[in-house]
Amino acid sequence: MNTQKQSFLYNEFWILTFGGAFQRANIYKPNVETEKRTIFRIALKKFVSEHIIPQYKTPVCEISHILNLEGIIAFSEKWHEILNNGKLNIGVSQKLLNLILKYYWCLGEIAMPPHCPVDRIIQSKGLEGETISWTTIADINVYLNIINKIRMEAENKNQTIAEWELEVFQRNEN
């Protein structure tokens, strides 16, 4: 694929990722200027693109993946003056990282990620029990409990978590 096409796709992936991770998450403090939001997104994209995504060229274990999620949270703390609670929470961080990894994996740019994006759709379509608002998950153990439920569902179908999510997730076609 030529560089211009690749660059276009990566930019589209990031637009979709930020939309998916931030749209309903209320991450910004009130009255934060659009310019500051844009600068934050550019810095976060650069951090994830340069420091995290390259690790996934080869398979990444779950512990390393969790450390990467924590790395995104730590990075976001530098932007405490514009972010609610002074940082991104685990729910928003996992959606951001897991979604961008899903796009790169589907394109064949990285190895299969260890997790999948956790949101209301995945919880309601694929898992029994209470649906937890992913935008408010602040405790890594709550996130890991959901991942463990997904893992059990995936293993019942002889699939990985990422494969299971691709099968279960379907966009509304309306």
Score class of each variant (00 low, 15 high):
P30R: 10
I63C: 07
S93E: 04
T58W: 10
A43S: 10
I39P: 05
A111I: 02
S7K: 02
L127P: 11
A21K: 01
G129I: 00
S93I: 03
T131R: 06
E33F: 08
R41F: 01
P113H: 08
K29R: 12
T131V: 15
E12N: 13
Q159P: 04
E33N: 12
K29S: 05
V48F: 00
W105C: 11
K5W: 07
K45V: 00
G71A: 09
Y104S: 12
S133R: 12
P30S: 07
Y103W: 03
T160D: 13
F75I: 00
Y28A: 11
S7N: 06
E163D: 12
L97R: 00
E77A: 13
L83S: 09
S133V: 14
A138R: 06
K46S: 02
R37Y: 01
L96Y: 06
L83A: 07
R120F: 06
S93W: 04
L107E: 13
P117M: 10
V60C: 03
I82T: 10
L97H: 04
K125E: 15
L44A: 01
N84I: 04
T135N: 15
N158M: 13
V118E: 10
F169D: 11
I161T: 03
S124H: 12
E128H: 07
I137K: 06
F40Y: 09
Y10N: 14
T160F: 09
I52M: 00
N31H: 15
F47K: 05
L127N: 11
A21D: 06
S133Y: 08
A138M: 05
M152D: 14
A162S: 14
R24E: 12
M1P: 10
N2C: 08
Y28W: 15
T34E: 10
N89E: 03
A138N: 11
W79P: 11
N98P: 08
R171E: 10
V168C: 09
F13I: 03
A21E: 03
E33M: 07
L96M: 13
Q6N: 10
E33C: 04
L166Y: 12
K125L: 08
I82E: 15
